[in-house]
Amino acid sequence: MDQLFDISLFNSTLRILTPILLAALGGAICARVGLFNVGLEGLVLVGAFSAILGNHLLGNVWLAVLFAVICVMLFSLLFAYVSINLRANVIVVGISLNFLAAGLTTFCLRAIFDVKGAYYDKNMQGLPRWDIPLIKDIPVLGGIVSGHSPLVYAAFAAAILMWVYLFKTVSGFRLRAAGENPVAAQSLGIPVRRIQYGAVLVSGALCGLAGAQLSLGQVTMFTEGMTAGRGFIALVATMLGQSNPLGVVASSLLFGLMDAFSIRLQGFALPAQFTQMLPYIMTLAAMFFFKDRSYLKDAQRANGSSR
């Protein structure tokens, strides 16, 4: 591997960006109802673990994905309950949720599989790779687009669906209304809380898929803290994409490419630590293009007289 750019780089970009994209879409729908979901990292981690657990218990990779989705949705209800009903600070709840996810997964890893650090079963089936008829025979494009786990395609489909939902349907319109001005939405009889719950649940489902792609799509194992900050990168992707599903696709593509690039660089006799640093540095650099003055807006909302 002495070439920096080739077809397989873009192929692996698609594979790697999938968890980020799925989680970032989850972040986007939460942001659209006014909840800044810092807990994406934890949700994805729970998804990754429960996908492996589901596969172990049910012996079927599809049921395992479903199991992961359900588990993370249940877990995300906790986020919804504490931040919506108990009125806790959303950021604090998100951070604590990350702690809880880390704690629960390591605990369950010990309690259920009786291992520390990582669980690996060489007989376990991962997600299949789909070769798309016709497209796979097109040169270059086929090599990039074809031969991925179904969740890769699901991620892009989810992005398009979410875009249509948010901007074309009545229900999506009301969801955006609930996020933009909850007081006004409430006064119109729009059930703001119910919508917020719905958004958190969808976000949970997407993060469940993201986790499943991590633990069953890219590898077939679970390691402690295997999300390694991808949830936070997804959060930045959400912000850069301005919570628009198509924008989120664009920013996730950028981060996926960086990730793939950093893996590729490991073939170039650079210390692993530096190549691993690359995605974080690039994410940080990307934030320079997104001026964040949310603290002022938050403060205005919290202190303004029209409360």
Partner: peptide
């Protein structure tokens, strides 16, 4: 809702529909 059009602001809650679409 500042980012919505005037029409959207007026019909919200009783939006004209085509199926599920606005």
């Amino acid at each position: 809702f500042p980012s919505f059009t005037l029409a959207e602001n007026i019909v919200i809650g009783g939006e004209p529909k085509k199926g599920a679409f606005f």
